[in-house]
């Protein structure tokens, strides 16, 4: 019984890049609408009604992006009104809204992605490509907090010794630069110990393997196959031009063929996959629990 975020990281990453890939390289309004609503729904399912600031920021950005286009671009046939001797057109306005839907949708997806993909999962994915790369990443992830803590400690120690005579900017900058220079020494000095510790444990004597923390289970393979199949249909629909929409000079939608409709349905199914998985898991769990 797994929730979507507990599926194999590779399967999750493939799903994620399929969804955002379509959203980024296509501008068909119906797909964009599906992407944005799916992204918001997914984010809400994961976080509930918290993260108010994120929502506020995204929707403010949405407004700015949607309004910017008609003010800058004056293409299009249908003039709504004239502002500062420049025509504001319906086409440009709708194009702006469409791009905003696309960008905000992708931003929502990325927000959820960073929540799901912990450093550990990223390491698993990079490790599948190269164990060495994954080790370098892991060491980098370790040293960043280590450095910031040490420099905070040094700065506190220097303050408590009263080395900086006054609270002025020049003194402050001089102090910071000295702390930075000693941090370099400190990093090198510690690097030697870390290198010793690595060598003592046999680093560099042969080919590295990597511990696999995540296995491929039936569910992962199903998710992966479903993702690729649905992506295939959508991509075919976009690639053959069955889903195309023109804003300029006037809006023109191509009549939907069977392939076009299947493309839209597939994309909707793709976007809703995690929601389906979560709901299915919850229902099954309810059923199983009733038997306990």
């Amino acid at each position: 019984m797994r929730s979507f975020s507990e599926y194999n990281p590779i399967a999750v990453a493939v799903w994620f890049f399929s969804v955002t890939g379509v959203a980024m390289f296509c501008s068909y309004p119906i797909l964009m609408a599906i992407s944005l609503s799916g992204a918001v729904l997914f984010f809400l399912i994961r976080n509930g009604f918290t993260h108010g600031k994120t929502h506020l920021f995204f929707w403010l950005l949405f407004a700015v992006l949607a309004l910017a286009n008609p003010l800058v671009s004056h293409n299009g046939k249908t003039v709504l009104f004239v502002m500062n001797h420049n025509p504001v057109t319906l086409e440009a306005a709708l194009y702006g809204v469409n791009s905003a839907v696309m960008i905000i949708g992708v931003l929502y997806w990325f927000r959820s992605f960073t929540q799901i993909m912990t450093s550990e999962k990223l390491l698993y994915i990079t490790g599948a490509l190269s164990p060495k790369l994954s080790l370098v990443l892991s060491m980098a992830l370790r040293s960043v907090p280590l450095f910031s803590r040490q420099s905070a400690k040094i700065s506190a120690a220097q303050t408590a010794m009263g080395l900086y005579k006054d609270d002025n900017i020049v003194d402050d900058i001089r102090g910071k630069s000295r702390i930075f220079s000693i941090m370099v020494t400190w990093a090198l000095e510690n690097g030697i110990i870390t290198a010793d510790s690595m060598e003592a444990r046999g680093y560099g004597i042969g080919r590295r393997t990597q511990l696999r923390r995540f296995g491929f289970r039936t569910g992962d393979i199903l998710l992966l196959t479903a993702t690729l199949a649905l992506l295939g249909v959508t991509a075919a629909a976009i690639g053959t031009g069955a889903l195309s929409f023109e804003f300029y000079p006037s809006m023109k939608i191509k009549e939907l063929t069977f392939l076009g409709i299947s493309g839209i349905i597939s994309y909707a199914a793709l976007v809703l996959l995690p929601v389906i998985i979560e709901t299915e898991a919850e229902l099954r769990w309810k059923y199983l629990r009733s038997g306990i």
């Binding site: 450093s119 550990e120 390491l123 080790l135 892991s138 060491m139 992830l141 370790r142 510690n190 110990i193 870390t194 510790s197 690595m198 444990r201 680093y203 990597q210 511990l211 923390r213």
Partner: peptide, 14 residues
Amino acid sequence: QQIVTDKVWHELAF
């Protein structure tokens, strides 16, 4: 400084 990686399990596996 002897610790190389960022996670406990990874350090054990190193």
